[in-house]
Design a protein around this nucleic acid. Structure first.
Lengths: 189, 189, 189, 189
DNA sequence: TACTAATCGAGACGGTACGTCGTGTCTTGAC
DNA sequence: GTCAAGACACGACGTACCGTCTCGATTAGTA
C-alpha cells in the first residue's frame, strides 16, 4: 500500500537521475540500478515513469518553502519572489524543478501533479494576502492568484525560457510593478 | 546546405506529430514514415530530434503574430496578452507551443531556440513601448521586458501549470495590475 | 509427506494445462491459479515443474491399460499395438502422453519417470510372452523387449515424428512383420 | 533474404547451446551473446526460438548420413540401424537430435520440421529397397516405411525413453526380427 | 547530351530501454 | 504444522527507436 521497502532509496535515485540527466535521461532501469532494487519492483508500485516521478516529488521536501512574514505585503511578496527565483536557480532543486515542470507539458499525469502543487501553494499563501488586507495594504477585492501568477510567471519565464541568470533587485522591481504599477502617472492614468 | 528536397513535408510531419503525440511521441522514424522520406535522410541533415524540431519551428510561421497598435499602451498590452493567451490555448498552435516550450527544459538546443525566440519577440515589441513613452503613458525609465515577462509569464503559468481555461477579462485585469498596481494606495485611491 | 491437502486439484490442473498448452505452457503459477492453491504451496512439495508433472503422471491412471489376453500371441500383440496407437492419438490422453514424453528429453527427472514407466510396462507385459512360449508360438530364446520396442517405437515415430494419423490395419501389418518377417524368404515362401 | 551476415555463427551457437543446455536452456539472448550478434538481429530474421532452431538444423550437416550399400538388404538395414543408433548416442549430434526431437512435441513449427526431415529420409532410403526388390530379397509389395519405422522407432524408444546404452549386436537382432520374424516356426504359424 | 557529384532510398546492424511473465525464495500472519 | 498472501531479485521475453553504416539508384547541375 505504501510502496516497496526501499521506497526512500528509489525516490532519491529518481530525483538524482532527474537532476543529472533530465526527464528523458530518467529511466526506470537506471532508477532500479542506482537504488539497488529490481526493475519489476518499481513496476509493481508505479505504472509509469511519470507516476514514479510524481510520487518522488510528492514525498520530496525539496520544493517546499517557508511562508514569509515580514510585516508588509511588499516585503512578503519580495521574499516569495526571491524564494521562487532561488528555487529555480539553486542546485539541486533547480534541475529537479525545471525538469519536472518541463516534463509536465508532456504527461497528463505530471500535469495533474503540477496543478495540485500550484493549487496547494496558492492555498498556503493566502495568509499573506489576508494579513495585507487586514493591514489596509490591499483592497479586499484584490486577486491574490493574479498577483502570484504575474510574479512567479515572470520568474519562470526569465529563468526557463530566457535563460537569464538571477538578477540583483529583480524581485523588488517586479513586486513594485505589481503593487504600484508601471504607468507613468501611476493611478492618474 | 538548405536541407533535403522534401524539407517542407518533413517539417510538417514534425509539427503534426509533435502536436498529436507530444515531444516524447515525436520520433525520427515516425517523421520519416509520415513524410515519405528515409530515416537516413533526416539524420543527414539534423543531428538530433531537438535540432529537427528547432528547424521546423524556425520555419513555421505558426508562432508569429501581428504587432498590435491600438493607440494606447493599455490597449496594446491587452491585445498582446490576449494574443499570447490565444496562442497557448487555440489548436493546433497550442499543442505545438506547449510541447516545444516544455521540451526546451530538457534540451540545450531547444532552450537556445526558446531564448532567441523570446529575444526576437522582445525586439519586435519595442515599438509598443517607444510609442507609449512618446505619448507620455510610460516613463522613459520603465522596463519593457519586465512588463512583458509579468504578463506572458502569468499566462504561461495559468495555462501550462495551473491548467486553467482562458478566462474572460483576464488580459484586462492582468494589464491593469501591471500598469496601475494592485496595492491599496494605487488601486484604492 | 503425502502432499498438500488439495493435491488432487493440483494434479488435475497440471495435466489439464499440459494437455492444453504443452510442456512449455505449463507453469507453476498457472497450476496454482487454476487449482486455487498458492504458488508457495506447490514449491513446498515439489522442487520443480518436472517433479510436479512426474507426480501428477504417477498418480494419473490415464496412461494405464488392460493387459490383453486373446488366446494368441498375434492377437495379444495386435491388441497391445492398437492400444498404444489409441493412447497416442485419442484425446485427452494423447496430448498428455506426447507432451510428457517429449519433455522427458529435456529433464533428467522426467526421463527417469519414463524409464521406470517403460520398465514397469515391460514387466506387466511379460505374461503375454510366457503364455506364447507355453503355447509354442514363440521360442524360449525370443526377446520380448525387442519385439515391444519395435512395435511401440514404430507407433511413436509415426504419430509423433511423422505426424501420421492412425491408419487402418497398421497394428496387424506391424505385428505380422515382427512375427513373420518382411524378407522374401520369410513372407514370400 | 538469406539471413544475417553472421548466420553461420548464429547457427553454431544455437546448436551448441541446444546440446549443452537442452531446448529449455536455449535462449535467444544466449545465442545472441555467444554468436556476437545483437538480439534484435536474430528477431529480425526468425520470429521464434523454434524457427531459429529449425533453420539451424536445416543448415546443419550434423544429422545427415551416407546411404549404405553393402550388397544385401540385411547389411543395408543393419548399417542404417547402426547409424541411427550412433547418431542418437554419439556426442555432439546425440544431444542435438534428442533435444530437437523432444522439443518437436511442444512446437508446431519444429514438428513440421521433423515431418519433413523424416519424409526426406524416407525418400533418400528408397534405393535400398528398390535394390532389394531387384535382387529378389524383398517382395515388391513390402512396405519400406513400416520396416524403417520399426527399426528407427525401436532405437529411439530404447535410447530416449528406456535410457539404454548402445548394445552390442542390437542392430543385427532387430533387423533379423524385422526380416525373418520372431515367431517360433517362422512362416508356419 | 552526356557526365559527375550530390543526394537519396533501402535496409541491416549494434545498442538501450521498454513493459511483461515466470521463476524460485522469503516473511508474515491466519487457521 | 500447514497454508494464503504477497513482496522480492532475477532472467528472459519480444518490441520500439536510436544512431550508424553500406550499397545502389536518382537526380540535378555542368561541361
Amino acid at each position: 500500500m505504501t510502496g516497496p521497502r526501499r521506497a526512500p532509496e528509489i525516490f532519491d535515485a529518481t530525483l538524482e537521475l532527474l537532476a543529472a540527466k533530465g526527464y528523458d535521461g530518467l529511466t526506470i532501469e537506471g532508477v532500479a540500478e542506482r537504488s539497488g532494487v529490481n526493475k519489476t519492483t518499481i513496476y509493481r508500485w508505479w505504472p509509469s515513469k511519470a507516476a514514479l516521478l510524481g510520487a518522488a516529488l510528492t514525498r520530496a521536501r525539496t520544493l517546499h518553502f517557508e511562508l514569509p512574514d515580514t510585516g508588509s505585503l511588499r516585503g512578503d511578496l519580495e521574499a516569495l519572489t526571491g524564494a521562487i527565483l532561488g528555487l529555480l536557480t539553486t542546485p539541486p532543486a533547480a534541475e529537479i524543478a525545471m525538469a519536472a515542470l518541463g516534463a509536465a507539458m508532456g504527461s497528463r499525469e505530471l500535469a495533474a501533479h503540477a496543478r495540485s502543487f500550484f493549487a496547494d501553494r496558492l492555498a498556503r499563501e493566502q495568509p499573506i494576502f489576508e494579513r495585507a488586507v487586514a493591514r489596509g495594504e490591499l483592497s479586499p477585492g484584490a486577486d491574490p492568484m493574479l498577483m502570484l501568477d504575474l510574479l512567479a510567471g515572470a520568474v519562470w519565464l526569465r529563468v526557463a525560457f530566457r535563460g537569464l541568470p538571477p538578477e540583483e533587485g529583480f524581485a523588488e522591481r517586479a513586486v513594485a510593478t505589481v503593487l504600484d504599477g508601471a504607468g507613468s502617472s501611476g493611478a492618474g492614468a
